[in-house]
Design a protein around this nucleic acid. Sequence first.
DNA 1: GTATTGAACGCTTTAGAAAGCATTCAGTTC
DNA 2: GAACTGAATGCTTTCTAAAGCGTTCAATAC
Lengths: 208, 208
Amino acid sequence: MPLTGDATPPLDETARAILDAASRRFLHYGYGKTTMSEIAGDCNMSTGNLYRYFPSKLDIAEAFVRRLRAEQIRMLREAVGKSGLSTQDKLRTFFKLKLKLVYDRFHDRPKAYELSQEILKERPSFADEWERAESRVLCEVLEEGEGAGELALCDRNRTARILQDIFFRFASSSVYYEGEYDVLAGELDDVMDLVWDAFEHRKELSIR
Amino acid sequence: MPLTGDATPPLDETARAILDAASRRFLHYGYGKTTMSEIAGDCNMSTGNLYRYFPSKLDIAEAFVRRLRAEQIRMLREAVGKSGLSTQDKLRTFFKLKLKLVYDRFHDRPKAYELSQEILKERPSFADEWERAESRVLCEVLEEGEGAGELALCDRNRTARILQDIFFRFASSSVYYEGEYDVLAGELDDVMDLVWDAFEHRKELSIR
DNA sequence: GTATTGAACGCTTTAGAAAGCATTCAGTTC
DNA sequence: GAACTGAATGCTTTCTAAAGCGTTCAATAC
């Protein structure tokens, strides 16, 4: 099986240098105010040569966001991988961390946030990929939960999708006002409590 | 008690004429391409006189969206008011109709859709009002459900808010592609099934 | 043959001027 | 004096020409 499916295909050394240079500029000045000749200059090469490594500027941005995603998936996987956590805690941790990551990116790296929003709008298939990558992590948690007898589901993939629908609000790009984080985290807890009650109910039904 | 809380304060006859004229133009040409002198012309009056009835152009737009809201709330209330519907069906109907109303507005009256989005962004307090108006309808359904012994909740208002969080995805403005309605409606059903299982579980707990 | 260059092309963004618009208010009407 | 007018104000949008930028490719380097 492929390692995780979240990993970016490994990059040429030159390609990585280009991506690193572009990333620095994207973070400081944003996508729109970064030019191909600046990136080329940072790498001591000509603009034309950039196109030997990336088909377009937007693809450099996608590679940038791909890294963000890989990092986020890694952190989510790590957070739910801790032993000693119940399945409920894992699910709660998953969505709370996801909220926190988006919230922090919005406040601390606004340029990165904008860029990822832009790419997700411009490249719907990439957005799907991201959702599927998270779905995979969720499915693992659900599978473990079933193994431990904490859950009884009819369809893990479907359940993961339902969870993503339910928690959509907490990853949604509606402006995150200062101080809103605690309110959102509180509401997330309420929603998680409800979800877990549903899971309990389904487990009981399956036992009978 | 006030009638519903959703009603707009009654309008002067002249104010209504202004709003009617503005509405026609908003629907056909959009907010930005409608000018105050056009509205005034339609009403056979001068631009200055408009300001005796509305503080600004944006307030005319707000009044327009206020009507949309009143109509939507009325339809939601009517849909869940049908006798013979279980509480589960009422909740399902509520959120499904809401999805349909937003979806249809997006496709059939795009200018009205844009305008309402604009107002909701520009006037957060109005967005809150809208949410509270829907919350009131939800609370009525929940209250009836409790009366009929179909539900046992600890806090109706809180539950209504949780439901709004959970179904946020289905009223969210992410672009509605052609044909996506059926997919969304299907996912909504899955989410509703899960919510109802949670309610069942809570009822059972409260009985014991 | 592979890697790289940089001038050339056409599309997009920008800057600055002109036009248009929302809003105001001194004055008019009834 | 309540309802209304329309010219004046200053902000915003539109227009247009110029500059800037992403992208290409024939030529160059190695």
